[in-house]
Amino acid sequence: MENEELKAIAAQLRQPHGSKGIQVSDMMHESNINMTRQTIKTLELSANEEVLELGHGNAGHLQYLFEIEKTVRYYGLEISELMHAEAKQINKSFADHKQAFFFMYDGMDMPFGNDYFDKGYTVNTLYFWEEPVKMLQEIYRVMKPEGIFSIGFAQKSFMEQLPFTQFGFTLYDTKTAEALVAKTDFNLVKSETQVEQIKGKIGGMLSREFTILTLKK
């Protein structure tokens, strides 16, 4: 692939848009569903909790979240207008029943007050945080005392094999991700690494190693 093609893929993964955005979001949902489910599991959801997600994509995974605990209230934040609209359409029933709420944001400042959420998570967005320490501190602000936030990300050793990650991605291994958390007010309570088989974004099957960091306020 030419650099321009790789740059276009990277830009879509960061912020799906335009005529190819829906296709990209469907692909991301398929390739990330196991990682997303495993990240949600680490939250150990309880009744009536307020749950935050950053970068939900098309949010096709919400059915799974509500199967675990139907009484939680979900709040999704997106930088992509296309994904914001797609998530609301796919999850119209949850939105109509005031179970799911979707918001746009600028990728940093969250439209919520302090100590708002019991639980929260994000999957495959860490690479795109321009100011990761500041981002984590903003997450810390909106979490309730004792609140849990989990971060799912693919290991650097896997990501650096993908040609498009040279454009706009910051890659992490467990050590560098944990060092990032250590610069914030969060406490790292668990770090878990798994391996899965996924379809490659440009074809074929790939073995992907991913890690979930579980943080506590």
Rank of each mutant, 00 (worst) to 15 (best):
I79V: 13
K20P: 13
G76S: 06
N58V: 01
L65Q: 10
A10G: 04
S19I: 01
P16K: 00
I79H: 01
L77P: 13
S19E: 10
L77V: 09
Q15L: 04
T42W: 06
I79N: 00
V72D: 01
M35T: 07
T71P: 11
I68G: 15
L65I: 10
H56S: 10
N32A: 04
E50Y: 07
S25V: 02
E44H: 06
L54N: 08
P16A: 04
R37Q: 04
T39M: 01
S46F: 02
N58Y: 05
V24N: 05
G60L: 15
E81A: 13
G18K: 09
A59E: 03
R37T: 02
G21F: 00
G55K: 00
G76I: 00
G55I: 09
L82K: 14
I40R: 15
P16Y: 00
T36L: 04
S31G: 14
S19R: 11
T42D: 08
H56I: 11
L43P: 02
H17L: 10
L43D: 00
N34P: 05
N58R: 15
K70C: 09
E69Q: 12
Y75L: 05
N48Y: 08
L62T: 10
Y74G: 08
Y74A: 04
N48E: 14
R73L: 12
G18E: 11
H29R: 05
S46H: 15
Q15V: 08
L82P: 11
H17C: 12
G21A: 03
G57T: 06
E49F: 00
E30P: 04
H29T: 05
N58Q: 07
R73E: 14
L52E: 05
E69A: 06
M27I: 03
G57C: 12
M27Q: 10
E69T: 07
L52Y: 01
R14T: 07
T42N: 10
L13V: 09
A11E: 09
I79G: 02
Y75E: 05
E81R: 09
L52W: 02
S25A: 14
S46A: 15
V51S: 05
E81T: 03
I33L: 14
P16W: 00
G21D: 03
E69C: 13
E53S: 02
Q15A: 03
A59L: 10
I79F: 07
K41A: 11
V24A: 02
E81M: 13
T42I: 15
S46P: 04
A47V: 06
L13P: 04
E53G: 04
R37V: 00
